[in-house]
Simulated scan of single mutants.
Amino acid sequence: MNEEITIKKDEEIVEKAKKVKEVQTPIRKGLKTKEAIVDNWLPRYTGRPLNQFGEYIILTNFSKYIQLFSQWNNDAPVMGLDKPMQSVTADNITIINFGMGSPVAATVMDLLTAIKPKAVVFLGKCGGLKKTTNVGDLILPIAAIRGEGTSNDYLPPEVPALPAFALQKAISTTIRDFSLDYRTGTCYTTNRRVWEHDKEFKQYLKKLRAMAIDMETATIFTTGFANKIPTGALLLVSDQPMIPEGVKTTESDSKVTEGYVETHLKIGIESLKQLINKGLTVKHLIF
């Protein structure tokens, strides 16, 4: 008897629920597409209007590069001092200090789809993993190992992280024009920042036979490919983290900045100008 009463009550509740008019939520305007988001967010992150970006981009994660680029271009204004990313534009080139780490590297590459740059060059510092690699050496990566995890949100882990060959060729030619040499090989990209004490991790790095280690290169290559943006990189060896004496310090980093950063930046600029002046295209991969 009690069960029959319970069933009838349940049925009454259902019938009442059917009669209650569903609340209608008004459709609000907003950023519904990736295009709308990046068009809004690139200026929001940089403080720079979309029409003030060059067609060629230099990415860095050091304010010194921004300052030098400004000085070399008649003190071109640095925009975004109160924003997450600072930038300077001159001669159709915009340099952006995007910060440090693979998540932020992926973010800036997504945001750059708002302007569809013709080429993006990453000028970063890295740790040299080989005994023959010295502080101040230039490394032109032919590929990067995706150890950071961030790039897995863009392409399956099996997809290699590769730069645009024509862009790396332009950088190689420019280095030779400066009467300098460079090392080439793979760069291992990780999200770990403090690992120099970890012996097991160091043994793992030795097995990979990578030339260098950093926190952005593989992410930039992968997100560039996913976003149909030709990317390249030139890395400056700033430390030798495989030995205790080579771990980066404030003093050693200052010496690297004083001795090598200007040349590093000049090569990046001249590499892009080579493409601009000769009207060369670097989009050789089928996206």
Rank of each mutant, 00 (worst) to 15 (best):
S172P: 06
P160S: 15
D239V: 00
R183E: 09
D181T: 10
Y204A: 04
R146I: 08
L167Q: 02
F178W: 00
W195E: 02
P241E: 10
I142K: 10
A212C: 11
D153T: 14
G147S: 09
A166I: 01
T184A: 02
K228S: 12
I171R: 06
S238I: 01
I175T: 02
I175L: 09
R146C: 07
K169E: 15
A210I: 05
R193V: 15
F178E: 01
S238R: 01
F201M: 10
T186V: 15
E245H: 04
Y204E: 08
I145K: 09
H197N: 12
A170T: 01
A161K: 13
N227Q: 03
K202Y: 05
Q240R: 13
S179P: 07
A218H: 12
A233K: 02
L140I: 06
E200Q: 11
V159P: 00
P241S: 05
I145R: 10
A210Y: 00
F165I: 08
F221R: 08
A164G: 00
A233N: 02
G246K: 04
M215A: 13
P244A: 00
A226T: 13
A218G: 06
H197V: 14
E200P: 10
S179Y: 10
E200I: 15
Y188F: 15
R192F: 08
I220S: 07
K206L: 06
P163C: 01
M211D: 05
Q240V: 05
I171S: 08
E216G: 09
S238C: 04
F201I: 07
G224D: 04
P244C: 00
I142V: 10
N191F: 13
H197Y: 12
T219Q: 00
P157M: 06
K206G: 11
Y182K: 06
P241F: 03
C187G: 03
P241R: 06
E216I: 03
S151F: 05
I145S: 11
E148S: 07
I243V: 11
I243H: 00
G232Y: 01
R192S: 04
K199E: 11
D181W: 05
E158P: 04
T189C: 11
Q203A: 01
E158Q: 09
K169F: 12
L162F: 07
A164F: 05
E200H: 15
E196H: 09
F165W: 00
G149L: 12
S179D: 14
C187W: 11
L180Q: 13
I243A: 02
K169I: 13
T223F: 08
N227S: 00
L162H: 12
R209S: 10
T190K: 12
D214F: 07
T174C: 04
S151I: 09
R193N: 12
V237G: 12
L235D: 01
T190A: 09
A210V: 05
D177Y: 06
G246F: 03
Y182D: 05
E196N: 03
H197C: 13
F178K: 02
L162Y: 14
E216Y: 09
T222F: 11
V247T: 03
A161P: 04
L162Q: 14
P163T: 02
R183S: 10
C187V: 12
M215P: 06
M215W: 14
Q240E: 15
S179F: 11
R146V: 08
R193T: 14
D214G: 02
P230T: 12
T174D: 08
A226C: 08
